[in-house]
């Protein structure tokens, strides 16, 4: 999950040989107290390395790859089509459906849909895992990392995934190690080596049927989430009405 402080210091020496901790914090925008605390505890957050790499113009993925726990990131693997599509937000996907002439023969939405919004989106983590899941994935991740399946699912529902788990998930699914880090928003698509129009190309390559079914799945999931939120809100209001 975190990186050892010693390895971090060694890495920092490599990219900013003469910079003081204060300089590093100023340039990367990390709070000094935060970094100091991480160093004292001997556990440096992955996000810290990412911020510092960006500040010094180093690719965060290759920076992370220099640490033992993340060396799988060293070999860049192109993302699969499923992964690319999973990183398209639901509204973008729905717009793409409406732009297909088979779906809307009248062509009322003939104007080109706007460019895809950048990853990550509101359900990107869950969609990513679902895209690469062969049915046994969660089980394998849990066996490999020792994280209980329900804790793993809870993270996905909250659209979160620790970097360690994200990489472990990629490995267990046999896809590129950086995909999960894109889905969690830790690194950008470009930093992961995804071509700029890769998601658009993947979207265009989907047949009408595939795209529509996928959008349907997303809508159904969205509907479920909204229903649950409304139900919770109703219940909260009732509690407040009776006990507030």
């Amino acid at each position: 999950m975190t990186l050892p402080a010693k390895a971090f210091q060694r890495w920092l020496q490599g990219i900013a040989p003469n910079a003081s901790t204060a300089d590093v914090c100023r340039i990367s925008g990390i709070k000094r107290t935060t970094l100091a605390q991480q160093l004292v505890r001997g556990k440096v957050a992955v996000a810290t390395v990412v911020s510092i790499s960006r500040a010094y113009g180093v690719n965060p993925v290759s920076a992370l790859a220099s640490f033992d726990a993340y060396r799988e990131l060293a070999a860049p693997v192109p993302p699969t089509r499923c992964e690319l599509v999973s990183q398209i937000s639901t509204p973008d996907l729905l717009r793409a459906v409406l732009a297909r002439s088979t779906v809307d023969p009248a062509g009322r939405s003939s104007a080109e849909p706007p460019a895809l919004s950048p990853a990550p989106h509101a359900t990107s983590v869950k969609n990513w895992v679902e895209a690469i899941d062969d049915g046994e994935l969660r089980h394998r991740v849990s066996a490999a990392t020792g994280v209980a399946p329900q804790n793993y699912s809870a993270q996905l529902t909250a659209n979160r995934l620790s970097p360690e788990l994200a990489v472990a998930t990629s490995l267990a699914a046999g896809v590129g190690a950086a995909g999960g880090l894109v889905a969690t928003g830790l690194i950008t698509e470009a930093e992961a080596g995804w071509p700029p129009d890769a998601r658009q190309a993947a979207l265009d390559s989907l047949h009408d049927g595939e795209l529509t079914a996928l959008a349907g799945d997303r809508l159904q999931a969205l509907g479920k989430t909204l229903k649950r939120q409304e139900h919770d809100q109703e219940q909260t209001d009732k509690i407040w009405e009776n006990l507030g």
């Binding site: 529902t157 909250a158 939120q229 919770d232 809100q233 909260t236 209001d237 407040w240 006990l243 507030g244």
Partner: peptide, 22 residues
């Protein structure tokens, strides 16, 4: 009981602000 009341005072004003998923 006091906590529920306090939560209402804190969040109750705008009913749709609290999103459980976050």
């Amino acid at each position: 009981l006091a906590l529920i009341w306090a939560a209402r005072v804190r969040y109750g004003g705008s009913a749709s602000t609290s999103r459980p998923s976050t």
